[in-house]
């Protein structure tokens, strides 16, 4: 899947995460900012990387502003942002699991 326009999903509320995606020609750049960076930074990055890999996102810019969201919320917000900003024809639910 490819990001073709700027898009956002999520909020800045506690337990949520705000995800912004935008297109770019270069390789994928992911920036994660988290309020719980010290305890969970590694894990958040793993979840983000895994979710993007399943969506086959290899280029673009992805910014994740985490407010202490659960993994499942991070996945949901990332997928929502990518689906909003991506060129999608027919949703393959299996990649969202």
């Amino acid at each position: 899947m490819k990001i073709i326009k700027d898009a956002m999903a999520g909020t800045l509320e506690s337990s949520d995460v705000l995800v912004k995606v935008s297109p770019s020609d270069g390789p994928l750049e992911v920036v994660v900012k988290s309020e719980v960076e010290r305890q969970f930074g590694e894990q958040i990055r793993r979840v983000v990387a895994d979710t993007l890999a399943r969506l086959t996102i290899n280029e673009g810019v992805v910014i994740v502003e985490d407010k202490g969201a659960l993994d499942c919320t991070i996945r949901a917000r990332l997928q929502a942002a990518v689906l909003r900003g991506g060129a999608v024809e027919g949703l393959d639910w299996s990649i969202l699991q």
Partner: peptide
């Protein structure tokens, strides 16, 4: 701020 950001995106400003 969150609401303003969402409004901006809706209006095409990212």
């Amino acid at each position: 701020v969150d609401k303003v950001i969402h409004l901006a995106y809706e209006r095409g400003h990212s």
